[in-house]
């Protein structure tokens, strides 16, 4: 199934009402540097294209770039690593979101149960820890709240290492918005991995949408 580029994926979920870190796309290193200046340092630069789904595995994500030089160097490297299979690509420049906690949320279509929303503890250990729970979409607010309660690591949702507790209402908004995307038959799946909890508020810093048609 075709995947949308991160940029198109971000646009889709952000229009659905899910907070996404500020971003823009650039066609050249020059442009990336000027976007970074506008967004404010530090920034993240990634290679972005419809054919590029597994950025981290291919080293196509550069985090925490603090200067123009660092952005320039990262952008050059990313552009030089483009292969013929990658199709049309751009540089995605986004603000660097800081937070100690990561969540993963997603929408998947199950053969038996149809569209389902997932919430889990995110980060690099997400799949190993597998503290995740599902609900059938769409979700009422109380169902979204119960989905949050279903996670095992509840203490991660409380105040944590100097950061406030996860803003429950904000997370419920994300889960409900994602559930509502389930009624869009064009959308096959959505991965928001991770959602960084910044000052209590979950913000998507990556997005991957699979659609029926590209």
């Amino acid at each position: 199934m075709p995947t949308l580029s991160e940029s198109r994926s971000r646009l889709l979920v952000s229009e659905a009402g899910i907070p996404v870190s500020n971003w823009e796309t650039a066609d050249s290193t020059q442009e990336a540097v000027s976007l970074a200046k506008n967004l404010g340092f530090p920034v993240v630069v990634k290679l972005c294209g419809d054919e590029i789904a597994h950025k981290t595995e291919r080293g196509l994500v550069r985090l925490n770039l603090k200067t123009e030089d660092a952005v320039e160097e990262a952008a050059d490297e990313l552009l030089s690593s483009v292969t013929a299979d990658d199709g049309e690509v751009t540089l995605l420049v986004s603000e660097q979101i800081r937070g100690n906690r990561e969540l993963i949320v997603g929408l998947v279509r199950d053969e038996q149960f149809g569209p389902c929303v997932m919430l889990g503890i995110g980060g690099i250990l997400a799949e190993a820890v597998a503290d995740v729970a599902f609900r059938l979409a769409p979700l009422s607010r109380s169902e979204a709240s119960d989905l949050i309660d279903d996670l095992s690591m509840q203490s991660l949702l409380d105040s944590f290492r100097g950061e406030p507790a996860v803003d429950r209402e904000a997370l419920i908004n994300v889960l409900c918005a994602l559930g509502d995307l389930g009624s869009d038959q064009e959308v096959l799946s959505v991965d928001l991995n991770p959602l960084i909890v910044a000052n209590g508020v979950p913000i998507a810093v990556d997005a991957l949408v699979e659609t029926v048609e590209g």
Partner: peptide
């Protein structure tokens, strides 16, 4: 529950195994 048919590109899909969707459905 069967989990194999889901799109490989999605992390959500790979986590949707071992009856987790059924468990969520039951609780819901």
């Amino acid at each position: 529950t069967s989990g194999g048919q889901r799109a490989a590109a999605s992390h959500t899909g790979s986590l949707a195994s071992d009856g987790r969707i059924f468990n969520g459905m039951a609780r819901q």
